[in-house]
Design a protein around this nucleic acid. Structure first.
Lengths: 214, 214
DNA sequence: TTTCTTATTGATCAATTGATCAATAGTGAA
DNA sequence: TTCACTATTGATCAATTGATCAATAAGAAA
């Protein structure tokens, strides 16, 4: 609505190298689609960039191609879960989990990340599947195994995870991710991330015994 | 894409009373927008109903009016939180909270409710604000007060809720609501609602001591 | 400064889509 | 069965929107 985005002042054309321009378009598209959803118009995106609409199609044959690129840029960004933080038993489990989930929260609590994930999932795109698959395959086993060790229970190798255990870890993820939803989707005020993660982890550790009980 | 929705067989017009037709349109629109988002086209909605597109505009002057109506139908539906379930101290707190949140889950875990809430919030519509305001004003105080009593702490009248307490209750809501998101937005398998709520409440009760500690 | 390459743009197309309206036909009343 | 009322529709409009292309001009090289 308000058109104070692209600087209308510098009316003069500026030529960028193809690489720079492409990068610029992707960067702008991430913010634009995160805000307006993938139904946002290419004309508005162009205007926000202070560039002609036709230029976008010079770099991306179709709008769908641009969206695809946005997905890759945001979701396929190399994120190596810092699981060494969790497995290092020289530290108390609480300390380790807090350190790990603070790192993790830095990724999943971002404005663009949160909104684009919701938009894409609601739109029926299954980019989130691979994200969740990674979480289930890489993070959960480590966390559950450490919980088992912490509570003096058999390791995952000896006894597979129960549904309740998996659900409990889901609950911790949910608690943290939902703070991002509260902030970036519902526009609500939220507590500072670091203290929040600490509280969620402590609450989780104290509460998880209920899930391990059976 | 697949056009097997509106029965193409009964090509013959069927006349309904204005009230019945209006109700039918709203009902169909709820499901349609919940699935496709508010960007869904009126032509598709009409086709899904087996009715002409023009008919929709006979009953709703603009698409925006129809959307408004969908909001009201889904979100303003009278829901009287069964808080008596929580305050009845003849039962153990765990039992009361489970009963209440099972009731609550019946509302917020629905397919249409969950998706429409996300679509509207992402679209910048602030229907959710009044929902959260109600939650904060009606549910939280009761739950926190009962927690206080349960743990032998001063009532809310004596000492207002701490940020951590509010955050803890948010956490319980988040844990339950996020199951709806997992199922209806991310399309993931989830455990049966009743057992899930029980687990979340038990985990919450056990974990909340951490939040009450200070 | 002049030239040349090509990044950028304005004009435009075709398909989509919300909305309108005169014509049609279902249904209850006579 | 016939009639009259009006719910419903097909045709159509105007605005929107993704996509195209010949013309333009920025900026490096000579």
């Amino acid at each position: 609505m308000s058109g104070t985005q692209g600087d209308e002042t510098g009316r003069r054309r500026t030529r960028l190298s193809p690489e720079a321009r492409e990068h610029e378009i992707v960067r702008a598209a991430i913010g634009f689609f995160a805000e307006n959803g993938f139904g946002g118009q290419t004309r508005e995106l162009a205007r926000a960039m202070g560039v002609s609409q036709a230029l976008i199609f010079r770099y991306f044959p179709t709008k769908e191609d641009l969206i695809e690129r946005v997905y890759e840029e945001v979701f396929s960004k190399e994120w190596r879960p810092n699981l060494s933080l969790v497995a290092d038993r020289s530290q108390p489990l609480e300390t380790r989990l807090i350190a790990f989930y603070r790192d993790y929260a830095g990724l999943i609590l971002g404005h663009d990340y949160t909104r684009l994930l919701m938009f894409s999932a609601l739109g029926g795109v299954n980019y989130h599947e691979r994200l969740f698959a990674r979480i289930a395959a890489e993070i959960y086993p480590v966390v559950i195994d450490e919980l088992r060790a912490h509570y003096g229970r058999p390791s995952l190798a000896e006894r597979p995870a129960s549904q309740n255990e998996v659900e409990a870890v889901w609950g911790l993820h949910a608690a943290i991710f939902f703070v991002g939803i509260r902030e970036h989707v519902f526009g609500l005020g939220v507590p500072p991330a670091d203290g929040m993660v600490e509280l969620k982890v402590r609450t989780f550790l104290q509460g998880v015994a209920a899930a391990l009980a059976e």
